[in-house]
Lab assay of single mutants.
Amino acid sequence: SKDAAQYVYDEAQKGVTQVTVNGVTFKFDNWQKLLKYAQKLLN
């Protein structure tokens, strides 16, 4: 959902490398990768 994507995006902006959405945890090597993933979700 857009809300989940926005949440992931906001978390990535904080510099975190993992985020949990609806009980599913996504882990990334660095926050830039998390940010890229979030941007994909938002598009």
Score class of each variant (00 low, 15 high):
33 K>N: 05
36 K>L: 08
34 L>P: 00
39 Q>H: 02
4 A>K: 13
17 T>K: 02
4 A>C: 15
36 K>S: 06
8 V>H: 03
14 K>V: 11
43 N>G: 03
25 T>Y: 06
15 G>W: 11
32 Q>N: 06
3 D>V: 06
24 V>N: 14
9 Y>Q: 11
43 N>D: 05
29 D>H: 11
40 K>P: 01
26 F>W: 07
39 Q>P: 00
12 A>D: 12
10 D>H: 05
34 L>M: 01
27 K>C: 15
8 V>D: 15
39 Q>G: 03
27 K>T: 08
9 Y>V: 13
42 L>A: 01
33 K>D: 08
37 Y>C: 05
11 E>F: 13
3 D>M: 10
35 L>D: 00
5 A>Q: 04
42 L>K: 01
6 Q>P: 01
23 G>R: 10
9 Y>H: 09
22 N>K: 09
6 Q>K: 05
40 K>V: 03
7 Y>W: 13
5 A>C: 15
35 L>A: 01
20 T>R: 13
2 K>R: 12
24 V>K: 04
32 Q>M: 03
19 V>A: 05
28 F>H: 02
4 A>R: 04
24 V>Y: 10
10 D>Y: 10
25 T>M: 10
15 G>D: 07
26 F>M: 09
9 Y>W: 15
13 Q>S: 07
42 L>Q: 01
33 K>R: 06
10 D>N: 09
28 F>K: 04
16 V>R: 06
15 G>M: 11
28 F>S: 03
6 Q>E: 13
39 Q>Y: 13
22 N>A: 14
11 E>S: 03
4 A>L: 08
20 T>K: 02
11 E>K: 10
20 T>M: 05
15 G>R: 02
17 T>P: 05
34 L>G: 00
14 K>N: 12
4 A>P: 13
9 Y>L: 10
16 V>W: 10
15 G>F: 11
20 T>L: 14
37 Y>S: 01
7 Y>P: 15
21 V>E: 13
7 Y>R: 14
4 A>S: 10
43 N>R: 05
32 Q>F: 12
37 Y>M: 10
1 S>H: 12
37 Y>A: 02
20 T>I: 06
9 Y>D: 14
16 V>G: 04
33 K>I: 07
18 Q>A: 07
41 L>E: 00
28 F>Y: 05
33 K>C: 11
1 S>V: 10
29 D>A: 07
13 Q>A: 10
13 Q>V: 11
3 D>E: 03
22 N>V: 15
22 N>G: 11
16 V>S: 11
17 T>N: 06
43 N>T: 02
43 N>F: 05
25 T>W: 08
6 Q>C: 15
27 K>I: 15
28 F>P: 05
22 N>W: 15
24 V>H: 03
36 K>F: 04
26 F>I: 13
16 V>N: 09
11 E>A: 02
26 F>V: 03
15 G>C: 15
30 N>F: 14
18 Q>M: 07
43 N>L: 05
3 D>T: 02
7 Y>T: 14
42 L>C: 11
26 F>L: 10
25 T>Q: 05
16 V>P: 12
